[in-house]
Simulated assay, not measured.
Amino acid sequence: MSSTSPSRHSIQGKTVLIAGGAKNLGGLLATDLARHGAKAVAIHYNSAASKAEADKTVAAVQQLGAQAVALQGDLTTAVAMEKMFADAVAAVGRPDIAINTVGKVLKKPMGEISEAEFDEMDAVNNKAAFFFLKEAGRHVNDGGKVCTLVTSLLGAFTPFYSSYAGTKAPVEHYTRAAAKELGVRGISVTAVGPGPMDTPFFYGQESADAQAYHKSAAALSSFSQTGLTDIEDVVPFIRHLVSDGWWVTGQTILINGGYTTK
């Protein structure tokens, strides 16, 4: 390899699949990886409500010179997950990088959570994450990178988020297991747990008092414009993990400015 050739762990020329890639953190990841040389990005979105944003992200990725396609699907069944990966492979080829940003938050006392609400949280945060890793193991190229979004609440001692943090918690073990199973193929597998992020995902659940608390809880809050975790601060870490940071595997990294620690 010449000194001017891209590293085998660089993003240059790689194919990317992002579940939940239409907007917020997923959308920024799509454009960021394209800007850093990805040749193709498959952008999943959940429903018709996100189609316009998915199309906008596709256009932004294409403007950066990469191929892009939007794929719609509710990923809470194994069949739907299989279809998303199959559709991505048919459209842009086997992924070198697979990132799952899909998640659902519920802030509610345990005593008020219905079985239907728990089942929905479990399907989105737990079941979908498991089958994403399963299909990534089947479809990601050797030497590839896989990353799943979890939450910094995995390091918190707090009420009201039992169904959110609880259904994200299994992903830590799935990540370790997948890293062991796929390591023989040179595939690294990580999980990233951002702190409360400055996106609609956060504001839809929190009262004004809770927002004020979260905006002051991180050690570095006073040095942030919002006091929260900005998606622009998370993206470089994920970019590193799915490129030159490949030697980190089987771990959950909390990116939160000192909001929680393990």
Rank of each mutant, 00 (worst) to 15 (best):
S5K: 07
K104V: 04
K168M: 07
R176M: 13
A177K: 06
A48F: 03
A191Q: 05
G257M: 03
T261P: 11
N46F: 06
R176Y: 03
A59P: 02
Q12R: 09
V189I: 05
I187F: 02
P109Q: 09
A128D: 10
L149T: 07
S221N: 15
V69K: 00
V89K: 10
S10Q: 05
K14A: 01
V61K: 02
E112P: 02
F132D: 05
A116I: 11
G37P: 10
P200L: 02
H44Q: 15
G245T: 07
A217I: 05
L28E: 14
K56Q: 13
A90G: 07
W247L: 09
K14Q: 02
F223V: 09
S163Y: 04
F131K: 07
A80H: 12
H173S: 13
A191C: 11
M197Y: 01
I43P: 04
P200T: 05
A208G: 07
Y161G: 12
A68L: 06
P109A: 10
L64R: 09
D96A: 08
L149Y: 01
D96T: 05
D233Q: 12
D198S: 14
V192F: 00
G193Y: 00
A34W: 05
Q225M: 12
V69D: 01
V150G: 08
G250P: 11
A40M: 13
T77C: 07
S162C: 15
L154R: 04
C147V: 15
A48E: 15
T252P: 08
V248N: 07
L17V: 08
A42W: 01
Q72H: 03
Q251E: 15
L182A: 01
N100W: 00
H36S: 12
S163L: 08
D55E: 15
A217L: 13
I113S: 02
R176N: 06
T101W: 01
M1H: 12
F131M: 13
P95Q: 00
L220R: 10
A78K: 15
P6K: 00
A136I: 14
H139I: 02
R8N: 06
S222F: 14
I11N: 02
S207P: 13
L29D: 13
I253W: 09
S152W: 00
T260E: 09
V92A: 06
F223T: 09
T261I: 14
N100R: 01
S221C: 14
I238A: 01
E53L: 09
A38K: 04
H44Y: 09
T57Q: 11
V58S: 03
K180N: 10
K107N: 05
N256G: 11
V189D: 03
